Each structure stands twice: as C-alpha cells, then as structure tokens.
Amino acid sequence: MHIQEWLETVPAVSIYLLVGLVIGLESLGIPLPGEIILVSSALLASQHGEVDPLVLGICATAGAIIGDSIGYAIGRKGGRPLLARLGKRFPKHFGEQNIAMAERSFEKWGMWAVFFGRFVALLRIFAGPLAGVLQMPYWKFLIANVFGGILWAGGTTAVIYYVGVVAEAWLKRFSWLGLVAAVLIGITSMLVLKNRAKKAAARAEAEPDAGTTAAPAQVAPATD
C-alpha cells in the first residue's frame, strides 16, 4: 500500500503525531523517510479538509527542531566513538565517506551547514549529531536549527499544500475541458464521415448514368 493511501485510513491526530515523530527521529540521526511522510501528508491535507496544514506544519517544524537538538546533545556527549558505532549500525548512511563529506561541509560553512543541511537528505540526518561531535557552540547551532527547521518543514508543508490545491483545481478543469473536447471531436468526426458518405453515394449514382447515356452513334447510309 502506498504511504498516502495508508495515511488516508488514519485519523488526523495520528498523522500530526506521526509526522512530528518521524521527522524528529530522522533529525536526531536515525535514517527515516521524514520528507516523504511530510510531502504525502501535505498532499493529503490539500485534498481532505480533516488534515489542517497549519497544524501539520507546526508539528513538522517542532519535530525537526527538537530532533536536531536531541541529536546535538547526543553527538556532543558521545563524540567520535558515536559516529563509529553509527557507521557499524547504518553503514549506508554513516559510512566513512559520508561522514568525511559532512565534516568538510561543516568546516567550510559552519552554522550554515546546519541551516542548509535541512534541505539535503544526507545532511539532514548528520546535522544534529555531527554539530555536537564537532563542538559547535550551541547558540550558533540553535539559531541555524530553528530557522532551518521553520523554513524546511513549514515551507515544504505550505508549498506542497498549495501545489496540491492548484493541481486539483486544474485537474477538475481539465476533466471538463476533456469532456468538451471529446464531444467536439465526436461531432466533427460524425460530420466528416457523413459528408464522405454523401460524396461516395453521389459518385455511385453518377457512374451508372454515365454508362447508360453513352449510346453508340448510328452511321447514316451512303447515297449516290
């Protein structure tokens, strides 16, 4: 079953809690499909009035900020041995190459890596724990975390919601246009076929007449 189909079967409160929980766990360093859950829920909100997009955006934002903060605390306390353990547990996400890439991003961009990391799936998982491991000052991390969480979670919810509303309106309009176009095509096809049938009948009537009217000419007898 598709995620959005499954979300349609659960109450709105459960969707809010699920979005906040999954995004929070992803932000603290557990590889989960937080963005997929958020996008699916925002699309569902655009199609069904039971899901409030404002509440959904608030839950997603809260999960992102709180999850990142917990990840920062865990990373600051666990240090690099934590990354080694995560690498053994999740080698696909916390492999040496991925960690090295994330560290280079943090060394180059600092708190901006936390902010923009929200919009990159891999860095979204790394941002909190790695900021703690690298001993980034908490006030810098908090500013980047809060603004990044609001812009990513709230912005994604708003954009997907309004895109879904506009898309649904266009699809409804397209269905009417499609119906009108189908009727016009049907009428045009019928008129063309009817016109061709008349021409074919006229040719069929003209051919026998041409054959019967073409009588041989009589030769006058010769006279002296």
Rank of each mutant, 00 (worst) to 15 (best):
M1D: 03
M1H: 02
H2Y: 06
Q4T: 12
E5V: 02
E5A: 03
L7Q: 06
L7T: 15
V10D: 11
A12T: 07
V13N: 01
I15W: 04
L18C: 06
L18Y: 11
L21T: 15
L25H: 09
L25G: 12
E26Q: 02
P31Y: 03
L32F: 05
P33T: 15
G34I: 12
G34F: 09
I36Y: 12
A45K: 00
A45I: 09
S46K: 03
Q47C: 08
I58H: 03
C59E: 07
C59H: 01
A60Y: 09
A60E: 13
A62E: 06
G63E: 15
I65R: 00
D68E: 12
G71K: 05
A73S: 11
A73C: 08
I74N: 04
I74T: 09
I74R: 00
K77I: 13
G78T: 05
G79W: 03
L82W: 13
A84W: 07
L86K: 01
K88W: 12
R89V: 14
P91I: 15
F94V: 11
G95Y: 14
N98C: 04
I99R: 00
M101V: 15
A102W: 11
A102Y: 10
E107A: 11
G110W: 11
G110A: 05
V114G: 06
G117H: 11
R124H: 11
G128C: 03
Q135W: 09
K140P: 13
A144K: 02
V146L: 00
G148D: 04
G149V: 02
I150S: 03
W152N: 04
A153F: 01
G154I: 01
G155Y: 03
T156R: 00
A158S: 10
I160E: 05
Y161W: 00
V163A: 03
V163T: 07
A167I: 06
L177P: 01
G178Q: 09
V180Q: 03
A181G: 09
I187S: 05
S189Q: 08
S189W: 14
L191V: 13
V192L: 06
N195Y: 13
R196A: 15
K198P: 05
A206N: 08
P208G: 11
A210C: 03
T213N: 10
Q218L: 07
Q218E: 13
Q218W: 09
V219Y: 00
A220T: 11
A220L: 08
P221Y: 15
P221M: 04
A222V: 14
A222K: 06
T223I: 02
D224H: 10
